[in-house]
């Protein structure tokens, strides 16, 4: 069996051993050096840089998200090799755009950066997928799509992950979605029980199992038009 070389984190970091942050100020702390590098490299695509509670937030142009994250991942002086999280934020104020948030970590430099892209209300909620850079984005982006309805261009398999595919009530984490769902309790139960647990395979699985004929009529029709199944 092959044994791996142990990868040490913080190999390129300066400033000695990290310590617990104390007395963090609300705004105006020291920014992550990567923010400056980003501004130099992509001057117009970087909209603004904020430091909130000692975390650097970089607001970027939605059109160049993929390029920027690719550079952060590949550049030898950045090496953001660990994608912690992909998520989205919708504010209570209906005027404020929806934000897609990437939390990136650089293990060699021990840095943390938050990249944000704003999608204005009214425009289609679409943004580039970073799946080709980080494999961990696969499920995280699917979840973001499931909960907010944000489409990630270039994702290989963008379908619902937590809710079932025939879920009709919408995207639960949007602010116009009521806490208890759009339908009445009995209607929700009726729809949930109407699913056939054995017919719920994805398209790939159905071709293996040869069970396409088992599906409900409307689903077969939609699949015939090229729609992906969920579940």
């Amino acid at each position: 069996m092959t044994r791996f070389e142990v990868v040490k984190t913080g190999a390129n970091a300066t400033g000695g051993q990290p310590a617990t942050q104390r007395n963090v100020s609300h705004r105006g702390g020291e920014a992550n050096p990567s923010a400056k590098a980003l501004q130099d490299k992509f001057s117009s695509a970087i909209k603004r840089v904020e430091v909130i509670w000692a975390e650097t937030v970089v607001y970027v142009d939605p059109a160049s998200v993929h390029e920027i994250i690719m550079w952060l991942h590949d550049d030898q002086s950045q090496q953001y090799d660990f994608l912690s999280d992909v998520t989205a934020v919708e504010y209570r104020d209906a005027e404020v755009p929806i934000e897609v948030v990437w939390h990136l970590r650089s293990l060699p430099y021990r840095r943390f950066i938050r990249v944000k892209a704003q999608l204005p209300k009214g425009s289609p909620l679409e943004i580039d997928s970073v799946w080709d850079i980080y494999k961990s984005a696969d499920w995280l982006e699917r979840e973001c799509y499931d909960m907010f309805g944000i489409r990630f261009r270039g994702h290989p398999d963008l379908r619902r992950i937590l809710m079932w595919e025939q879920y009709k009530e919408g995207f639960p984490l949007r602010k116009d979605f009521p806490l208890r769902g759009r339908f009445s309790r009995s209607e929700q139960l009726r729809q949930a029980l109407a699913q056939n647990p054995e017919a719920r395979y994805s398209m790939e699985e159905l071709t293996i199992a040869d069970a396409f004929a088992e599906l409900p009529e409307d689903m077969r029709e939609r699949l015939g038009k090229g729609e992906r199944t969920g579940e």
Partner: peptide, 15 residues
């Protein structure tokens, strides 16, 4: 898998 990443060491909290 041989990566020495532990949040307690790399981004410490609670001292």
């Amino acid at each position: 898998s041989g990566v020495d990443y532990d949040v307690r060491k790399d981004f410490p909290y609670l001292d």
